[in-house]
Design a protein around this nucleic acid. Structure first.
Length: 442
DNA sequence: TCTGGGGTCCTAGGACCC
DNA sequence: TCTGGGGTCCTAGGACCC
């Protein structure tokens, strides 16, 4: 295999590996249910920012045919008819629950890749004597008992197969929440793979599934049995790796240590249309400050910032405008004030009056480790200023961390913030704010 | 009326260089 | 008038993921 990126190189480990993926069921909905047990058994959805789209559905809602990501207003009739309960997303709560899940999992294997807020790969290679199906049942039971969250587990020699096993564990009750390809007769694996659509494979989205379907590759099994070289030619090296992974040949390694981000974004739709440069500037300032915080927390500096604003693309008859601009930062920096200054400069360049803006966003780019910052063009001028900046940003972060986000903020972020999001259905931050902790009533 | 946010990787094509 | 070929770097866009 010709070179390539390290993380895609084949594992030097000989013999099949045992990779597990633990995935929380309907994570956001399950988090809400932990603190409101009365929601159990009832149809529940969690909505995206601005209560715009459905981003999590309980089984009852899935059974009604509600798809992931549909605009909430489109399912209003169903909501009325079936008494669907809807919640604004409460990310502080979900992040906190996620951390708890991950730390429990860490006890089951130190080789852990936190893949997303509700998913985690574990390398269980070498622990097969424990009977991994039983071992993973223990994982399920512990997370259920300690946190009240339901999870399913897939086990296989590769990540792609583990994801597939997880899918099976979720859909087919006879597996009782744990599906282990490493202990499955190959005839049974064939049968199951022939019964699952190719679109369920990790890495095969809607477009690829359509394209593959036109070529007669409609099931997981058909993709597994396709010629890898041919797939590479017709599609890409990525899909070729998927084919190999489906055959049990590992191409994706488990990444214990999370790599630093290469770009950091912050964007948001507004609660109501925004027209003025002033309001857009406040929003852009806030987003930039949030991104800069993340930048500092991973100890990077940014070499540039991209700013974009846009009108509502769904309003086809309204005038459309979606410009963007990238502003280089002369000196790579992590100082919120400097980055915000650059962002506002860029915003002024692209702003046009008379339009109804629906969203703004920024992206920090050209990130590099903050230690090895290049000596500036004017080193004599920078030195003193720099250590001041460092102390100030450090203090800012510490106060906001302790007292809550937004306790201290730049004046440019505004006071009124009439562009703020709507979020009228939010549950309390049970676990992260003392003033919203569960109250026990006699 | 009302349509999310944050990431990654790969590829193609153009600019530029020798 | 006729005008090569190969390499690198960058960017935009598309696909995917949750």
């Amino acid at each position: 295999m010709g070179g390539g990126h390290e993380r895609h190189s084949q594992s030097p480990v000989t013999g099949p590996r045992s990779i597990a993926i633990v995935d929380c069921n309907n994570f956001y909905v399950s988090c809400e249910r932990v603190f409101q047990p009365a929601l159990e058994g009832r149809p529940v959805v969690v909505l995206s920012n601005n209560d715009g789209c459905v981003v999590a559905r309980s089984d009852e809602v899935k059974a009604l045919g509600v798809k992931m990501g549909v605009p909430f207003f489109q399912i209003r009739p169903l909501v009325e008819e079936h008494g669907i309960l809807a919640f604004s997303s409460n990310y502080a709560l979900y992040a906190d629950m996620s951390n708890r899940v991950m730390s429990i999992l860490h006890h089951f294997s130190p080789h852990q890749e936190v893949y997303s807020i509700d998913e985690c790969f574990l390398d269980l290679t070498g622990m097969e004597h424990l009977d991994l199906t039983r071992y993973c049942q223990k994982i399920r039971q512990r997370i259920r008992k300690w946190l009240g969250l339901p999870v399913c587990v897939g086990i296989a020699p590769t990540k792609t197969l583990a994801k597939l096993a997880n899918h099976i564990a979720k859909k087919q009750p006879q597996y009782n929440g744990v599906c282990n390809f490493n202990q499955m007769p190959s005839l049974e694996a064939d049968r199951i793979m022939a019964s699952i659509g190719v679109g369920e494979v990790w890495g095969v989205g809607r477009r690829l599934a359509e394209h593959l379907g036109r070529m007669g590759i409609e099931t997981v099994k058909a993709l597994r049995d396709a010629d890898p070289k041919g797939i590479r030619q017709q599609f890409s090296v990525v899909l070729e790796r998927t084919v190999l992974e489906l055959r049990g040949i590992s191409c994706l390694s488990l990444e214990d240590i999370a790599p630093v981000k290469k770009q950091i974004m912050s964007s948001r739709s507004f609660g109501a249309y925004v027209y003025s440069l002033q309001d857009l500037g406040e929003a852009v300032s806030l987003y930039t400050s949030r991104a800069a915080e993340k930048l500092r927390s991973q100890r990077s500096v940014a070499g540039g910032i991209q700013i974009y604003i846009r009108t509502n693309p769904h309003k086809e008859h309204a005038p459309q405008y979606h410009p963007s601009i990238t502003v280089p930062l002369i000196e790579p920096t992590d100082d919120s004030r400097r980055i915000v200054r650059a962002a506002l400069w860029g915003l002024k360049r692209i702003y046009r009056p008379g339009l109804a803006y629906q969203k703004a966003g920024i992206m920090l780019v050209e990130l590099s480790p903050s230690g090895q910052k290049q000596a500036g063009l004017f080193p004599a001028v920078m030195g003193q200023d720099e250590s001041r900046s460092k102390r100030l940003m450090c203090t800012l972060d510490r106060i906001n961390q302790r007292m809550g986000n937004g306790t201290l903020r730049l004046a440019s972020e505004g006071i009124e913030q009439n562009w703020k999001m709507k979020s009228g259905r939010k549950s309390p931050c049970y676990t992260t704010r003392w003033d919203e902790i569960v109250k026990a009533m006699a």
